[in-house]
């Protein structure tokens, strides 16, 4: 069993990525009815921006903070100019638009940074490994696990404890009511989109160091994130976390024992969970409950 424990830990890290991406997706999806197919492209963008900064000689830690912020600026610009006109329209339009954007983004990354991936290693301080008693573990993975945990906890606290967070949740439930209360809905939509992209950006930089960085690397996390949203229960914050971790562990463990099924396992899990609980694990709890 000694070799299973690290795999489970790796699965938890992978799952935490899924959870974080899924939360960003659900934030945007639930408030504005937009399935953001360009979400993965924003992750990739943050990764490449961080890579460019580090290549230009900046500190990795600086890049970890700056790249997501730049990505948010791009994201908010896209939201204000392209996505906003679509909020009151059929969701097919925002789906097509974000799909088109992801096609453009992928090609742009390819033109600038090449078709193949670029090497983007973690900073020296995070290389090497740490002894966990029963096994040695790469320090970078431990750091990522900690960072993702911090993001998730911060999000939960933000959405459930702060005034802005509560407004966001209220707006998700009833955007007309919030508008009637005098909250600026457009501003709220923008902040919400920016928040979704910010999380995606941080996850994108972290993922670039761990899972590789190429024009499609962010998109690779998109489908597991969709499945995470479905398994967890659409609209549930807790569900996204539980669903992501469950899927991450399932994938890791399957990779170890039945590698042929490693991609299929999350879909099997999804079908089984929907058969037992049609609304997903926490689907009945209401929005972001």
């Amino acid at each position: 069993m000694a070799h299973v424990a690290p795999e489970i830990f790796n699965g938890l890290i992978l799952g935490a990525f899924f959870a974080v991406v899924a939360i960003g997706l659900s934030l945007i999806m639930n408030l504005t009815g937009t399935i953001n197919l360009a979400h993965g492209s924003f992750m990739t963008l943050a990764g490449y921006l961080a890579f460019a900064m580090v290549s230009a000689g900046t500190n990795w830690w600086f890049a970890l903070a700056a790249a997501p912020i730049l990505t948010v600026i791009v994201g908010v610009a896209v939201e204000r100019t392209l996505i906003r006109p679509l909020y009151r329209r059929d969701p097919v339009y925002s789906l097509l638009l974000t799909f088109g954007l992801s096609l453009i983004a992928e090609e742009v990354y390819r033109l600038i940074w090449g078709t193949n991936g670029v090497p983007f290693s973690p900073p020296p301080s995070l290389q090497g490994s740490v002894s966990l008693g029963f096994t040695d573990f790469p320090a970078f993975r431990l750091f990522i696990a900690g960072a993702l945990l911090v993001i998730i906890v911060a999000l939960v606290v933000f959405l459930q404890r702060t005034r802005l967070g509560l407004r966001l949740r209220a707006a998700v439930q009833d955007s007309e009511m919030i508008a009637a209360l005098g909250t600026n809905t457009q501003l709220l939509y923008m902040l919400n989109f920016g928040l979704g992209i910010l999380i995606a950006g941080v996850a994108g930089v972290l993922a670039a160091g761990l899972l590789g960085l190429n024009p499609q690397s962010g998109n690779a996390l998109l489908m597991p994130a969709f499945v995470t949203v479905i398994v967890g229960g659409m609209g549930s914050l807790l569900g996204a976390v539980a669903g992501g971790l469950l899927i991450g562990v399932a994938i890791s463990v399957t990779t170890l024992f039945l590698p042929a099924f490693s991609e299929i396992v999350m879909y099997i899990l999804m079908a089984v969970i929907l058969l037992i609980r049609p609304r997903g694990l926490f689907g009945e709890e209401g929005i972001f409950g």
């Binding site: 392209l82 006109p85 679509l86 339009y93 925002s94 097509l96 638009l97 799909f99 088109g100 954007l101 992801s102 096609l103 453009i104 983004a105 992928e106 090609e107 742009v108 390819r110 033109l111």
Partner: peptide, 15 residues
């Protein structure tokens, strides 16, 4: 890099 004009077609069509 034909994916760029293709993607732009999506954007133009939608908007």
């Amino acid at each position: 890099w034909w994916q760029i004009p293709l993607g732009a077609l999506f954007v133009v069509c939608v908007l």
